[in-house]
């Protein structure tokens, strides 16, 4: 079942440059939350801090009852938070099955649930069963993203965090992936989603946050944000977006 993720007063930076400043954000159990904003707003940096790849300089991150602030990533995943990183970071030369097996690394080698979880992931993404002996790097972009999500599910996370899952993928593939995210949320998993396709993210999420220059500029129920004049103007194609 899902746990809640609570971020309070978080500051993260590279060296002396602050990239994320004073961010408060929470995901309730079983909720899907979208974090939107333009490139360079600090979304990925925030996620890296949540997963432990970057150490916050101030603030707290709590997962359920536990304070996970400053924990290394290999400990955080054991607390029940899995990140599907930007760019997927698959183990390219290893097979699809080996990637899934490594996803279950936190669990005992003889855990019989691992096999049933793999069957479940294959049911969600049938292509992973078809290509199970193929090296991950030979999959198409969409299949790789499915593998990245499937791999993250293998540790049985309570909170699933995704960084730009739709980036560079065909609409049909994006639809398939978001359908799975909807299913997982319906089963009670908590999901935090960073997306640059704001329209897509707000369509699926319960609530949303808008990040600008490292700060939370707006927050609210997804449908309200989707109708917000400012958000429409800046992120939903109200004017041509300039990429950094």
């Amino acid at each position: 079942m899902g746990a809640d993720l609570r971020i309070a007063g978080l500051h993260v930076g590279y060296g002396r440059i602050g990239v994320v400043t004073d961010v408060d954000l929470h995901v309730d159990p079983g909720e899907m939350v979208a974090l939107i904003g333009s490139n360079g707003a600090g979304k990925s940096t925030l996620l890296k801090a949540v997963a432990g790849l970057l150490k916050p300089s101030a603030g707290t991150i709590a997962l359920g009852e536990r304070d996970i602030t400053g924990m290394p990533p290999e400990k955080i995943v054991r607390q029940g938070l899995a990140l599907v990183p930007e760019g997927r970071m698959l183990f390219g030369p290893l097979t699809v099955d080996e990637n899934l097996a490594i996803g279950a690394h936190t669990r005992p080698a003889r855990d019989e649930g691992v096999a049933s979880d793999r069957a479940r992931v294959q049911a969600l993404f049938p292509v992973l069963a078809e290509r199970h002996t193929q090296p991950a790097e030979t999959l198409s972009g969409g299949e790789q993203q499915m593998l990245a999500v499937g791999r993250a599910l293998m540790c049985r996370p309570q909170v699933l965090v995704l960084d730009e899952p739709s980036l560079g993928l065909a609409p049909r593939v994006i639809a398939a992936i978001f359908e799975v995210l909807d299913t997982l949320r319906a089963e009670g998993m908590s999901i935090l989603l960073v997306e640059q396709d704001a329209r897509l993210a707000l369509k699926h999420a319960d609530r949303g946050y808008v990040m600008r220059s490292g700060e939370i500029a707006l927050e609210g129920p997804a449908h309200e944000l989707a109708n917000d004049e400012q958000v429409r103007h800046a992120y939903l194609g109200g004017r041509p977006e300039t990429r950094e």
Binding site: A51, G52, L53, P72, P73, E74, V77, R78, A82, L83, P85, M89, L90, F91, G92, P93, L94, I102, G103, H105, T106, R151, C155
Partner: peptide
């Protein structure tokens, strides 16, 4: 293959 990806999977590098 990747230190960061390994750590995200819970591997104690």
């Amino acid at each position: 293959i990747s230190h960061d990806a390994a750590r995200l999977m819970g591997i104690d590098t």
